[in-house]
Design a protein around this nucleic acid. Structure first.
Length: 439
RNA sequence: CGGGGCGUAGCUCAGCCUGGUAGAGCGCUUGCCUUGGGCGCAAGAGGCCGUCGGUUCGAAUCCGGCCGCCCCGACCA
């Protein structure tokens, strides 16, 4: 993409409405614009990031065996009366009426709907296990939205729902999601730590929040430092096999959010040198809830002997739009955003330092065409601006690599390649650049 | 929902106390200059001062209602 033709309204100053760094940078880097409290429009650069996050989530869900569906944002009140949640949910739920005065709502979640879909389509234990997910906009009318997309009222969420014949099956489904989540966040360059979460009235130990560490995190967290360094991507995963050992490995060490924290246990179980007290952002939550919805909503299948079995369910959420902010919280510096390659809106920023120099512009245009032909995503800053402004904008939007072409280096056939994350610069022969990045 | 604050140019803000018809910096446009970290000079464009009403000869300014946004708290993917 040529920056001279791209809609990228960057801001030099911090908008007064934004307090935390990710919100400021998302506004300044032209990723989003607020439309109402907690409701945002995604501009071209931001939308590319959002789609990349979504893509990774989708790939890992598919790999785990979950199947994608798409449920509507608008639901009927009657559906929620079946589970008893219509009255229980409170003002957080956005309630609306259609022209026939029917009561509707903008869905804050989809347990009820998925349960009816399941109950209408699945009648036999042979059809289990089943895990369905979708990635859809949700609305929760938070009293006080804040932190930009980290806590908006409208947000994009991946949520899925597993259906099993018994607790053992539900545990296997839970473990598959547990591992898929580890992989999903790791692929986004995040250190996400699973922490035991409150299971409320259902009890048991099958609920985990996935927390990434960031100074601006919403809650205090405590864990064994060893968990931060564990690597999932190097491990072979067999979703058809027994994942319990792997899950055990990631849950053996102490890790808790402040509401589950037990200071005495923390000090007993974790050696002093490995005690990590930090702040965290919740980016995912997995939950086994048994028959909470299947029982009242009659999601029943026939067992081997023809007996009715109320299915065991779990639900699993990932805050897709929230992740855009969370990643920035975890990865930025004073100059701007530092995107991990997997979610970066473009891989390379190509800077033409002197657009009215024929040789420089030709080198830039040729390289741009070559990289594009090789499928490398490039944002080409061909604007007629001073170099300083280009450097500042490029650092702000945080593309992983900058390829800098100016008259000085070009005279020797050289261009400069800068790594945004490390700041490391190297000189490369112009004709080697394409090969370097096409790999 | 309780407490606090703020709505003036695209952005950050001044002006309001002490009413007299609107300003700065940045950004934008044009020209010149400059060209490896938001350069310089010059000339411009751009605002029914959130909204409705009241007071007044006159309201950005004083008073009231409403709307919107932000912060702290309680609540949350």
């Amino acid at each position: 993409m040529r920056l001279s033709q791209y809609f990228l309204p960057t801001l030099r100053e911090n908008p007064a409405e934004a307090q935390i760094v990710s919100h400021r940078l998302m506004l300044r880097a032209g990723l989003i614009r607020q439309q109402a409290a907690g409701i945002y429009a995604w501009l071209p650069l931001g939308y590319r990031v959002l789609r990349n996050i979504e893509r990774i989530v989708r790939e890992e869900q598919d790999a785990s065996g979950a199947q994608e569906v798409l449920m509507p944002t608008i639901q009927s009140a009657d559906l929620w009366r079946e589970s008893g949640r219509y009255d229980a949910y409170g003002p957080e739920m956005l309630r609306i009426k259609d022209r026939h005065d029917r009561e509707m709502l903008y869905g804050p979640t989809n347990e009820e709907m998925i349960t009816t879909i399941f109950r209408d389509g699945v009648k036999s234990y042979r059809d289990l296990p089943l895990n369905l997910y979708h990635i859809q906009w949700k609305f929760r009318d938070e009293v006080r939205p804040r932190f930009g997309v980290m806590r908006g009222r409208e947000f994009l969420m991946k949520d899925n729902y597993s259906f099993d014949i018994d607790k053992a099956g539900a545990t296997r489904s839970y473990n598959r999601m547990f591992v898929a989540y580890l992989r999903t966040f790791a692929r986004m360059g995040l250190k996400a730590i699973p922490m035991r979460a409150d299971t409320g009235p259902i009890g048991g130990d099958l609920s985990h929040e996935f927390i990434i560490l960031a100074e601006t995190g919403e809650s205090a967290v405590f864990c064994d430092r060893d968990l931060v360094d564990k690597d999932i991507l190097g491990r072979a995963i067999d979703y058809a096999g027994d994942l319990q050992p792997l899950v055990n490995e990631w849950t053996a060490q102490y890790a808790a959010t402040d509401e589950m924290h037990d200071a005495a246990r923390f000090e007993t179980e974790v050696p002093a040198g490995r005690r990590l007290a930090a702040r965290g952002i919740e980016v995912g939550h997995i939950f086994y809830f048994g028959t909470k919805y299947s029982a009242p909503m009659n999601a029943v299948v026939s067992g081997p002997k023809g007996e009715p079995i109320t299915v065991e369910m779990g639900s699993y959420g990932i805050g897709v739009s929230r992740l855009a902010g969370a990643i920035i919280e975890a990865s930025h510096d004073d100059a701007g955003i530092i995107w991990p390659e997997s979610v970066a809106p473009f891989r390379i920023g190509l800077l033409n330092l002197k657009p009215d120099d024929g040789a420089v512009s030709k080198a830039c245009n040729d390289l741009y065409a070559t990289l594009r032909a090789k499928g490398v995503e490039v944002l080409h800053d061909d604007r007629d601006l001073r170099p300083g402004a280009k450097f500042a904008d490029m650092d702000l939007i945080g593309l992983p690599w900058q390829v800098i072409i100016g008259p000085k280096g070009l005279a020797a056939g050289k261009v400069e390649v800068k790594n945004r994350a490390t700041g490391a610069r190297s000189e490369l022969a112009l004709d080697q650049v394409a090969a370097t990045f096409a790999a």
